[in-house]
Amino acid sequence: MEDAQPTAALSGQIVQLEKLDGQLIERMRHEALTAPAPWKAEYGEFQSGGWWTTSLMNASGEAGDVRIGDCTARPTALLGHMPATAGLLAELGLNYMWVRLARLEANAFLWEHRDYDELDQVERHRLHIPLHTNSSAFLVTGGTKVHMGGGRIWRLTPTYAHGVCNLLGPDRIHLIADVYADDAYTRLANRAKEPTADRLPAASEADLAERLAAARRLADLGYTGAAEQMLLRLFYSFDLPEGTAYDLIASLHTALGDSEASTRWTAAKAKLLALAS
């Protein structure tokens, strides 16, 4: 892996915004780890399992309502148990569409995907505040790996394909705020700074052949799900052309003689990457 440095490949996909007070972040972390949150598994098609969210502000005011959409967000009862977090959200003065806590367990993944496909009419932005994280939790976009460290607000522009993982744990917890563009947001965004990132290595043909053979070995033993996950994980290890992991899974199933599964993964690629059909 090359040295950590800002990379052109990020091209504004992920930037650092405001730095936050360390003691405030510690209080927010304590709240996130101890508040009585109704964690929900949603967006199952995007993830390995282990991605849980709970709402702090949303349309219904119910914390368990986590499938996001355009709305005027109001606080949930859960946010009432989190005064430090509520204080920061108020202080930022943003026009919130939805605010969630997102928990990614160890060995859990949000697979390579594009967001906002169904929400493309209004300018909106996604802000992350990492509250509890570890060095094996990172985001990959454009072949680069970014560990979103604690202590500041980050902005993710998820129009490029990206994925998130927490390889080894413990749990990663982020506050995610989807906000509409307005003056308060513009003031925050004016302080954007490119983060340092690690360029992932390119995969050689030998690398891919070796991983494909290992996946085939698992599949031949009957561990098809593990074989698929092993190939999906390549997105987090190598700088691959978009959708390569899905193509490899489709190839694996073709080689196994399962054309139905191969077609299913080709369709999954189109859906997750929001490709024109």
């Binding site: 070995r217 698992l218 033993l221 996950q229």
Partner: peptide
């Protein structure tokens, strides 16, 4: 018959699906 292939696949299986560190 499967022991060599199973042994060879075990680390991958336990890492990917078993959560081994």
């Amino acid at each position: 018959r499967d022991l060599p292939a199973f042994t060879a696949a075990l680390d991958d299986l336990m890492t990917v699906a078993g959560g081994a560190l």
